[in-house]
């Protein structure tokens, strides 16, 4: 069931088309990664979904509500964690979270409770009186998240929430995002760190020049650009090993695209669709090659992203 639906969305700034007939859906309770190079139209799309920017054509619905007709209701459903840390330096952590939650109409007691919960969620419950200026980069990032989730939104939009943070804070943030999803929130997530996207996103959309290039799970996206996976089999080559015969036999097997050997590691390129790994391993045994380890690799999201959006600098 789709929670957010973007249909044929068009947004122009003068002669520039920032979003060009973009369509995708985000399922309820998933973490949806929105990827694209700089200037691809990600921010404009997020601004439209979060009601910040109007659009020229198309339709956007959140929780079944049309964004143009039910702006006020949709605003209540959304929590935004902007890329830039959007907090007040002269207010302490609790005051910051309480102020932003107060804009959603909470009473005094609910406000404090929700703010405390949000701060606890991001691991800042012991820093409630600390002002952002006295916090580390990672703590400020986590406070930025707390300000966006204190009103318990059903749709959380996170725009590069881990920029410039240390490994510990990043891990904490990513775990928190998973936890938000597990608690029932739908998350739209953008990042330039492909590893993060691979780690936490249930489905991914790649956009460029305002258009959708690819959309699906990570495996689905990879299969769009290649049907070859690389398998590395580490073995111990015996003295009387008939290398040429072995390689010839393997090459003749269906789905095998190539074979090479280096330092007792045999590298095989095999078709994703005609995965014949069981028969290949049998041949290893027939030729007296013990299997020490097997590692399979699909092209990374990084490679996929560069393949789809090009390698030239922008």
């Amino acid at each position: 069931m789709s929670y957010v639906a973007v249909e044929n969305l068009v947004k122009k700034y003068g002669d520039i088309t920032a979003v060009d007939h973009l369509s995708f859906t985000v399922s309820k309770g998933e973490i949806f990664g929105l990827l694209g190079p700089n200037g691809a139209g990600k921010s404009t799309t997020l601004n439209i979904i979060t009601t910040l920017t109007d659009f020229d054509k198309g339709k956007v619905t959140v929780d079944g509500l049309d964004i143009r007709e039910h702006k006020a209701e949709i605003k209540r459903l959304i929590g935004m964690v902007p890329q830039d840390i959007a907090i007040y330096d002269h207010l302490n952590a609790l005051e910051n979270v309480k102020f932003f939650a107060s804009l959603y109409g909470y009473g005094k007691s609910d406000l404090t409770r929700n703010a405390m919960e949000a701060l606890e969620f991001v691991g800042l419950s012991d820093k409630i009186k600390v002002k952002p200026k006295q916090m580390s980069g990672g703590m400020r990032r986590r406070l930025n998240i707390a300000c966006g989730i204190a009103h318990k939104p059903k749709l959380i939009v996170l725009d590069e929430p881990t920029v410039g943070v240390d490994a510990q804070s990043r891990e904490h943030i990513l775990n928190s995002i998973r936890l938000l999803r597990d608690r029932g929130a739908t998350v739209i997530y953008t990042s330039h760190y492909m590893q993060e996207v691979e780690q936490i996103c249930d489905s991914i959309a790649i956009i460029d020049k305002g258009q959708l290039i690819a959309c699906g799970t990570e495996t689905e996206l990879v299969s769009m650009v290649t049907d070859v996976q690389t398998v590395f089999i580490k073995t111990k080559i015996p003295i009387n090993f008939e290398k040429e015969t072995f390689e010839k036999k393997i090459k003749l097997m269906p789905g095998v695209k190539g074979i090479s050997e280096e330092d007792s590691v045999i590298k095989l390129d095999i078709s994703v669709e005609q995965n014949n790994i069981g028969h290949i391993i049998q041949e290893f045994i027939n030729f007296g090659l013990p299997i020490i380890s097997i590692k399979s690799e699909l092209p990374s999201l990084d490679t996929l992203f560069l393949t789809l959006t090009g390698r030239e600098l922008r």
Binding site: T50, L52, P82, A86, Y104, G148
Partner: peptide, 13 residues
Amino acid sequence: QEKTIIRLRIAPI
């Protein structure tokens, strides 16, 4: 400058 305008504008006020 503090980017807080985004949060203010997203809020249902």
